[in-house]
Nucleic acid binder design. Sequence first.
DNA 1: AACTCGCGCAACCGCCCGTCG
DNA 2: ACGACGGGCGGTTGCGCGAGT
Length: 338
Amino acid sequence: GRSPCCDELGLKKGPWTPEEDQKLVNYIQKHGHGSWRALPKLAGLNRCGKSCRLRWTNYLRPDIKRGKFTPEEEQTILNLHAILGNKWSAIANHLPGRTDNEIKNFWNTHLKKKLIQMGFDPMTHRPRTDIFSSLPHLIALANLKELVENNSWEEQAVRLQTEVAKLQYLQYLFQPPTNYPMPNLDMDTLNLLNSLPSAFSTKDNNNNNFNHNLNPVLNTANLDSPNPFDAIHDHLPSLKTLETPTNFINKDNNNNGISLVSNDQDQVVFHHQPCEFTVLSKGENSPTSPWLPSSPSPPPVTTAATSAPLIDGCNTTSATSFWPDHLLLEDSLFNDIP
DNA sequence: AACTCGCGCAACCGCCCGTCG
DNA sequence: ACGACGGGCGGTTGCGCGAGT
């Protein structure tokens, strides 16, 4: 490869002095940066062009926002990272005043650790399989004596459910997306969603409404397929690409429900209120453009409330395979979680 | 007060890609 | 078609600082 430009003889490296900063700012304000390679000589700087460019774009640019990341910015980064991965410049496009370098540093020093501590794989944003897959086994070991004495597999199942719920609760604590526009649906999509037979249902808190924080989200009890997204697939041709289902669960903006965010190459579906979806599509002009709702806002979609098992289909052997897509939760599960 | 250690962040490194002659 | 160049990007480094001992 080409040798770095800063290896050229006599060019300064390392931290910038206030005097150098001033020279660079003065020059760019007067003349613009033009050719970065030519700039250092013209500005009277003993630096390579690349160093000047980085200093300007990451630090001296007047529109740079300084200070701590707000919770909203943090959430935006998390959600965009779930979709875009380490595309820092693409993520920075959605955070005015923040540089890709700053976001990258924030991710590496804060957010990545946060995810790891919560048991998530920072790259996939999914629970780490190494821990999660061993959970039933660990619980079984811990309770072996008791289980042998009481022959209580039901008890073990309940304990497992609680552990799963705790993990889900951690995920729930993991703050919601705030910068996505939602919800908007076209009537065709609505009609198709309405035609789904019991694919999505909920217990309601006040008999009629679907606005309880931790309502059950997906009820797969009446589905042949264990995967609710398969049901969508069958009934909603436009969402065929969602065979790889949910990779994220969030509270929604108003703490009204849980969002299932499904990642796809050109579509993202938010399932926030039960049976209420936002289908977001990439703009046609730019692969890094914001995700936009595909249509005007519809009335909310509701289905009849159903009661469901605490964790539908959960047992000690299938627990690892259905996380998190089929998880059903009841508030009572969280009563003893501090 | 002196020292160690860990963290955060600015800066650098090197690869990649588009453009141009 | 090809190579040099300029700029962009993601990954990594290392310095400075503050907390802890």
